[in-house]
């Protein structure tokens, strides 16, 4: 590096050792360009890893009791423990429904047709608007005097307005409204990554459409579906604003993030809040690992498309 300007005589002195060292680094692909990583590394260490481990450490230093007593406190309190099932009871069905509903629709729409871009743009809208606005809309739309119940009574499906907000269903709908487009667009991009000639090849070999889907496309799509499920699940699992706004935050939609939030911002018990956040992360990790483990059982190589 610095030897550039020095004369051959000056080089010969310290050269062998340094050259050797440089050669070793070069072989492993290390050089000055890697310094470009520093800002990002610094960032991730200071703003992500440090807070995370700080939180982890904090969760073992409860304001009173032994290191694990905050965890014990969470699991021994039935009201707190129930949040786990509440959260899973909301997020697993919602994620599953979003992914399963996406498949046939994406399968039908994967080709080119007029208005496809419009459809995708419209689908992006609820995702970008986010859960807070969706909650506000759902309060109006699904409320006892909202349009949804009005239509139902108008066509005589019900006589009484159905209660759809401030309970499980309000939150569930909000997870569908934001989660379905998300899952759909992901599934669509995985589907268009599968080379369409594979299905044509299967057709020339005598496979009907269902067989083509079942034997060729679906197995190739499975890893993508697993990933989609994970991402949709993560979104649904961390549900917070809609659980408060369209749900019943003290009762049937008291999800785990509400428990964590209350510990931190209402009781100012940061160790307890950290412990709940860690439990939350752990549960999510378990679900994702199970899905990703199942994913390894499928073929995950190239699918030949423009992917």
């Amino acid at each position: 590096m610095t030897a550039a300007t020095s004369t051959p005589a000056a080089e010969s002195a310290g050269q062998p050792a340094r050259a050797h060292w440089q050669h070793r680094l070069a072989e492993r692909g290390v050089d000055r360009q890697l310094w470009l990583l520093t800002p990002a590394l610094l960032f991730v260490v200071l703003l992500f890893l440090y807070p995370f481990f700080y939180g982890l450490g904090l969760s073992f230093q409860p304001t009173e009791g032994r290191p694990f007593s905050d965890y014990a406190r969470f699991f021994s309190d039935a009201y707190q423990r129930a949040t786990i099932w509440t959260t899973l009871g909301l997020s697993l069905p919602a994620a599953l429904l979003n992914v399963v509903a996406s498949v046939p629709i994406a399968y039908r729409m994967r080709g080119r047709f007029r208005g496809k871009r419009l459809v995708t743009i419209l689908l992006v809208v609820p995702i970008t608007l986010g859960t807070v606005l969706t909650a506000q809309g759902l309060l109006n739309f699904l409320g006892p005097t909202g349009w949804f119940n009005r239509v139902l009574t108008a066509v005589h499906l019900t006589d009484e307005p159905i209660r759809l907000i401030h309970n499980y269903w309000g939150v569930f709908f909000s997870l569908i409204i934001t989660g379905f487009p998300f899952a759909f667009l992901l599934v669509l991009s995985y589907l268009s990554g599968i080379d369409p000639t594979l299905e044509r090849a299967a057709a020339t070999l005598g496979a009907g459409w269902w067989q083509r889907f079942r034997v060729v496309t679906l197995p190739l799509l499975m890893p993508g579906l697993a990933t989609t499920f994970c991402l949709t699940f993560v979104l649904a699992f961390s549900v917070f604003p809609s659980a408060v706004l369209v749900g019943n935050p003290a009762g049937e939609t008291r999800v785990i993030s509400i428990a964590a939030y209350q510990a931190a911002y209402e009781q100012y018990d940061y160790p307890y809040a950290s412990a709940i956040a860690m439990i939350m992360g752990l549960i999510e990790l378990v679900v994702i690992s199970v899905v990703l483990f199942a994913r390894t059982r499928f073929y995950t190589g190239s699918t030949g498309g423009k992917g």
Binding site: G29, V44, P51, G55, S257, A260, I276, A277, M280, G281
Partner: peptide, 30 residues
């Protein structure tokens, strides 16, 4: 390509794989 590239890539991915509340509470505390 350099040693540890996959690890670094994974660490960079983590913040978007995790729900914001999970790391948001420790982060806000810090």
């Amino acid at each position: 390509n350099f040693p540890g590239k996959r690890t670094i890539y994974l660490v960079f991915l983590l913040p978007i794989l995790m729900p914001p509340i999970t790391f948001g509470i420790p982060l806000a505390t810090v």
